[in-house]
Design a protein around this nucleic acid. Structure first.
Lengths: 379, 379
DNA sequence: ATTGCCGACTATATCGTTATAGAAACTCCA
DNA sequence: TGGAGTTTCTATAACGATATAGTCGGCAAT
């Protein structure tokens, strides 16, 4: 029976027989098409299609025969063809702008959440990583248009605010991650960065610190369209906390760590050397907080004895380091999940206007600020 | 001029005019097709295609006009249609089997390397993450066939050896990451796991340790087709080192940490409680080594004073923890890059037989084994 | 004037599906 | 017996590109 079918479906044209035909371009072992199935099963193409899509108007007997042939010929319908005719790609794109690969662990957590949710919804996730310094982001967006991507998620440190405008103008549904930006089919999910940063600063203030170094991520990119970055939001929270406690904001306590450990290490060291009155550091990412801790040790001082350090993100490593890092917990995985859910809602329900999501950012007290109240799980 | 063109290209059929037409399914703002461009520019579809693909047989004047129209109508050729007719997808698939999302930081590093290289080659990367315990991996493979994915990369802890067999049988070029498995169009890249593990164990032995707990990842999956896992390789290295130094392998010193911190913590704690003669732990991943360190502390003992710990991977956090973790460095990012390069070679050059890549795995001495020789960069 | 060639452009089949609109056979009921 | 309605199946036009195999002037060589 099996052989019988195999004989029947072979197309007349190609002469080649053996599996490893000689001149074939890679991967182009001719796979059977819907027409081959139809021929072998003795039905029309339409019938096969109806079986495939479970129209329910095919007799049990015919359906069985068709399915059997499909199995025997090892048939898989071409998603390419289907997508073309249905004008849907079932593809979501995650676009990550980062400076050195996607090395930031927090992005990783978000990505985890995204993949699992995308998978669940039966979509595909295309992962695109661009260096923030790479000016050719327009090309990357072009690929989204060409591939008829159904939705875009944007994450990381953007090269320019133009990206946002262009995504919005493209009409493709989009969810920004940690970038407050909205449009007709665009929204965002973010942690409550202002409240998180405020809480971090207040924690330090409540422990008696007054001169607190603020370690920012980047300088603004050279185009001065203001980007609604997490830096901005966290800075607002930091300044709010100072104001609420009658401390004047001192711009000379701000330094730039480039979101890297080494960047923060040298920046913080420089500040600590020039300002002996500093007793605390608030870095807007855990990785930079690690750098700050190293800087403190570089100067033969102690964390938290001489300088208290608080971070932001609560990446896994925050609980590994000694002293364990007090930080603001962002729910990265949840953030990824929420982004996908909202994106799918925008896609499937165009009338509904998209809704922004703000996730809470909580203080996790560990050891790096000298608070003795350790949560038991980080012992 | 612009308006002129816009008038010309509008198709006759659809009545809707405004942008936010009412009943339109999301994202289905009708984008212009190659036919619209042809019409508006007053040339044939073929001519537009020739311009698009730089055939070089179009007069400068015509080409200019066509390009201008494309710009004005905001035209992007449909990759879907092109892929269908060219029978190529320019898509690579990364398939990751993991137990809890893709939470292992090492996978992340590899993924970084992969994306950057894929991007560079002008391909797209589809990211698929499956839970190892999820039995429906066959469905995931089906999607690769349907999407005419040109190459597959497989990473993580597979649910079954059948996956490997099926990928090989599919004829799709594939590169396994850290899974030694080969076929006509299949190969792998891996660290030198045996040598790495041997080195880790020898390091402990050279410091005088004799009873060394070995923290493995998983038990073998329930189907007993033997999987060529990193566990197996590292175990071989560990046993080799013991043998070379006349130490008898004690199976009761092996425990299972499930590649998680907590799993390792409780497994190691149990072992330490039952075996007071143990002075060292070798965990086959850094994350499990962190768990082991916690277990040691749980029992009020000290690392490295009472128990030395060595890990495997050298994830970033390994240098953050206190004491900093002595471990075997795997070059994750390079691994990802190599995988993509080799995969592209298999795809573009089907005659060449694929070549396996084995990357060196080096010992990085930090503090967790009590070696005083600290490399300066981890101070 | 014929032939051949070249440069610029085009008509049409094709990729492998789904969608639309029937067709053929059969049942049911008056 | 003659529709009406069902059930099962089918022919064919899309979808939006590329590939193949031209056409049509014009120009040089014979």
């Amino acid at each position: 029976m099996s052989d019988d079918v195999h004989d029947r479906w072979r197309r007349p044209e190609p002469g080649a027989d053996g599996e490893s035909g000689d001149g074939v371009p890679a991967g182009s072992i001719q796979r059977p098409t819907i027409r081959d199935i139809a021929r072998a099963a003795g039905v029309s193409v339409s019938t096969v299609s109806h079986v495939l899509n479970e129209y329910g108007d095919i007799s049990e007997e015919t359906e069985h025969r068709v399915r059997q042939v499909m199995e025997e010929l090892n048939y898989y319908p071409s998603a390419l063809a289907r997508r073309l005719v249905m004008k849907r790609s079932y593809v979501l794109q995650l676009l990550l702008f980062a400076v050195e690969g996607l090395h930031h662990p927090f992005f990783y957590e978000v990505t985890c959440g995204i993949t699992s949710e995308v998978e669940k919804a039966g979509y595909e996730l295309v992962l695109g990583v661009k260096d923030t310094r790479d000016r050719r982001w327009r090309e990357t967006l072009r690929r989204c248009y060409e591939a008829k991507v159904e939705g875009i998620m944007l994450m990381g440190t953007l090269p320019s605010a133009k990206v946002l405008a262009e995504v919005r103008a493209s009409g493709i549904p989009a969810v920004m991650i940690d970038i407050p930006f909205e449009g007709p089919r665009v929204t965002y999910v973010t942690s409550d960065n202002i409240a998180g940063a405020r809480r971090a600063a207040e924690h330090l203030i409540s422990l008696g610190h007054r001169n607190i170094i603020y370690v920012d991520g980047y300088d603004l990119p050279d185009e001065y369209t203001p980007l609604p970055t997490i830096s901005v939001a966290r800075r607002i929270g930091y300044e709010e906390a100072l104001r609420a406690h009658g401390i004047e904001f001192d711009p000379r306590l701000v330094c730039i760590g480039n979101y890297t450990q080494e960047g923060a290490r040298s920046a913080v060291r420089a500040k600590l050397e020039s300002r002996s009155d500093v007793t605390a550091v608030f870095a807007i990412s855990d990785v930079m907080a690690f750098g700050a801790m190293k800087a403190v040790r570089d100067l033969e001082r102690r964390v938290p004895g001489d300088v208290a350090v608080v971070g932001f993100d609560d990446i896994e490593a925050a609980s590994y380091v000694r002293p364990a890092l007090t930080t603001i917990k962002q729910q990265g995985e949840l953030m990824g999940r929420s982004a996908v859910c909202e994106l799918l809602r925008i896609i499937t329900n165009p009338k509904r206007s998209p809704k922004a999501t703000v996730l809470p950012a909580e203080l996790v007290v560990r050891e790096s600020c000298g608070a003795s109240r350790l949560s038991p799980q980080f012992a």
